[in-house]
Design a protein around this nucleic acid. Sequence first.
DNA 1: GCGGCATAAATTGTATACAGTTTGGCGTAC
DNA 2: GTACGCCAAACTGTATACAATTTATGCCGC
Lengths: 251, 251
Amino acid sequence: MPRASTKSTASPATAAAAENGAAATDKGSSIESIAQDIATAIVEKRLPPGTWLREEALGRVYSVSRTKIRAALLMLSKDKLIEMIPDKGAFVCQPTVQEAREVFAVRRILESEVVRLFIASARPRDYQVLEQHIKFERTALRQTTTTGTVREKVLGDFHVALAEATGNKTLAELVRELVARSSLIAMLYHSSNDPHCSSDEHSDFLRICRKGDVEGAVLCMIDHLERIEASLELGTEKPDRQLDLVKALLA
Amino acid sequence: MPRASTKSTASPATAAAAENGAAATDKGSSIESIAQDIATAIVEKRLPPGTWLREEALGRVYSVSRTKIRAALLMLSKDKLIEMIPDKGAFVCQPTVQEAREVFAVRRILESEVVRLFIASARPRDYQVLEQHIKFERTALRQTTTTGTVREKVLGDFHVALAEATGNKTLAELVRELVARSSLIAMLYHSSNDPHCSSDEHSDFLRICRKGDVEGAVLCMIDHLERIEASLELGTEKPDRQLDLVKALLA
DNA sequence: GCGGCATAAATTGTATACAGTTTGGCGTAC
DNA sequence: GTACGCCAAACTGTATACAATTTATGCCGC
């Protein structure tokens, strides 16, 4: 699998696990690893949008005090994956339609240039890594054990890997954040996008890159992103926002 | 002045003030306002790159406990304005040459599109706001009381205001972060850029926008950003990094 | 039975206490 | 005189305690 992580922490951050005090993981989890773990849980929809993340419960899960949990939540709130409402708590974000459109607009801007930079600097090794990634997508999509929500993350990772291949870490970091937010958005506005289709588009895209067709590749990427956005139900504001009641009350 | 802030906190975060326990500001400073205040102090060079930000000292300055200070520092570290080194402390960032180049590269990508979006959607009111901003730049630059370091911030604010005028808050937020990092970079690699020159370029830029010359305006913006980057001494890695010794040792 | 108020439980916000690590200084050995 | 090592002061990392706020419960009046 691409980007084999050296991180040691397991992934126990299910809503259920947060409730009962079961899964006690390794004691010395760092703030970063806790934040990363929760972020993964959000992107994989184990913590759906609107979920209330109680600090003490999370503390039990990771066997740490609320201090570290709060620090982790603060980082996630900067990533716009959770929202911290004063005296109320932390909740998994429910991006608005406008915010969703904005995120995809920025992604088109950044990733268009990612494509240009990638083709300009790509070495055989970079293509290998991405081909490998697509292969991984395929196997992940084939497996019946793979939940439909994990697919989003796997597909998003391709875009991150592409950005990382440009060598511009700052750029890659921004793409990573936007891709994570996109996953959240895709779940909120239940994307009707066919994962296999996306994977095929990734494959087609790489083929065009290999030909050195820069503008073709750029258009392919923009098309791809627009297709993803179009597959969302952005026409209707989500009605099932239980938590918006709470937020509305304090306004 | 454009963007009149409703924030109430003063700006006592000088390195000196952090040392002696003098300036006790209003007790109930929120985490956000503390972070914002320190960020402003960094961008205005009252807290130069490499400065060690001791938690207890900052706590005395803002009359809060280390808990809130740590939260504020954590936010700033996400903005890449400070760096938190485990068991060592928080230090004002000293971006590398590569990072500096990356930041400007991303700015060119984002702000090119900012220009297109701005011209496409700009109303008379938007132009007024920006003209006002340039007028403010001029008076700020004329005043002898204005330190050379404040000028960087004022000039950077123009780019933020432009991004905000596009209506895409997500985009504007990213530009804001990158502009702040740019200010830090400009100070580290003592920019030889003439502030008056930059202000003139802002003025010229707006004129081109008014004509509706989209591509001309885009090129003007890219030129402007490249001129800023070119005025930096990015050829030589900064030798006066006292703290890099520390960082090198723990590697 | 239903609405409203008082009270109690639960949860977040903040400060403080304590443990672990680093840093600087002093003293001693060589 | 210099280098090494030990000890103390200072600082960060984390947990815990307490205050403030919110939310749930139950009681009473109607």
